[in-house]
């Protein structure tokens, strides 16, 4: 069986540069000037999962991204990694979208591009990290989804078995196709893009889609279609006035043990039994 797979990726500022982010105090906007954009790291895991499926079952991998025109570089990179085609949803009318409007626009893009057996995304973006687009995209597409998938196999032509990361646990699910899976980084190790891949990428098709190319309800896209909006932004200062312990390792350890002892060691014991400590510790009455 050949699978028609779509992978939604996001173009994000390279997390290695987050220390360099500043806020323009006048306009209250984030300055990310000079910070390079990359494919959101975990989205590469989604693409890798798609490429592996294609290698195993045949089919096609289409990459989709909603972003300003510059994100074509990330789409070419995805094609260099092995995706067959790419589409860039770009329009000034899409700007200012929150997760609901973004996922709506992506859904309309996917509807325009064809019928997909499987839609893959990463669990969350490195910049916004809301982790909301996968679930909302599935909702707009009216297909089932699983989020935080760490492992999956195509069990039959209609079904996927998946392991999902829960809190200190792993859940196992069966999901019917067509479906959306948001994968986590431990699912695989994305392949490196090769020199040959880079050269092939430019010969592949990148489709630009504006709002006129899509069947969109204008009240659901961009800022207009976003229920949430951003107020003030700030960069919190977390600085503490530290004290340096110096000397030989033995001297340092002696000072450190004294500090630990001074740091409310006895109080620490007492706190466990107060009302607040009790609540989280689970039921004890059988």
């Amino acid at each position: 069986m050949a699978l028609n797979i779509a992978v939604c990726i996001k173009s994000v500022p390279d997390p290695k540069w987050y220390e360099k982010i500043t806020i323009d105090t006048k306009t209250k906007t984030i300055t990310r000037k000079g910070i390079p954009s990359i494919i959101n790291p975990v989205d590469k895991n989604a693409l890798e999962a798609a490429l592996k499926l294609k290698e195993q079952y045949g089919g096609k991998v289409t990459v989709l991204c909603m972003a300003p025109p510059g994100a074509k570089n990330e789409l070419y990179e995805a094609m260099a990694m092995g995706a067959d085609e790419a589409a860039l949803l770009s329009d000034l009318a899409f700007a200012g979208a929150d997760t609901l409007a973004t996922s709506y626009t992506l859904a309309q893009g996917l509807n325009k591009l064809g019928k997909f057996d499987l839609v893959l995304t990463g669990t969350e973006s490195a910049d916004g990290a809301t982790a909301q687009v996968p679930a909302q995209l599935a909702e707009w597409l009216n297909i089932p989804h699983l989020w935080n998938v760490k492992e999956f196999v195509l069990a039959t032509e209609q079904e996927i078995h998946a392991k999902v990361k829960m809190d200190d646990a792993v859940g196992e699910y069966v999901i019917q196709l067509p479906a959306l899976l948001a994968v986590s980084r431990e699912i695989n190790k994305p392949r490196y893009t090769t020199a040959m891949g880079v050269m092939k990428a430019r010969k592949k098709t990148l489709t630009n889609l504006s709002k006129h190319d899509l069947d969109v309800n204008e009240s659901l896209i961009g800022q207009v279609g976003s229920p949430t909006w951003s107020g003030d932004i700030s960069i919190p200062s977390l600085a503490r006035k530290g004290q340096e312990l110096i000397g030989t390792p033995e001297e340092i350890v002696t000072q450190l043990i004294a500090k630990l002892r001074a740091a409310g060691i006895r109080e620490g014991r007492g706190m466990v039994n107060d009302a607040s400590g009790n609540l989280g510790s689970g039921r004890t009455d059988g």
Partner: peptide, 12 residues
């Protein structure tokens, strides 16, 4: 643009 991308992927 290909050469720029090549540099990026090799660097990674």
């Amino acid at each position: 643009e290909e050469q720029e991308m090549l540099r990026k992927v090799i660097r990674e």
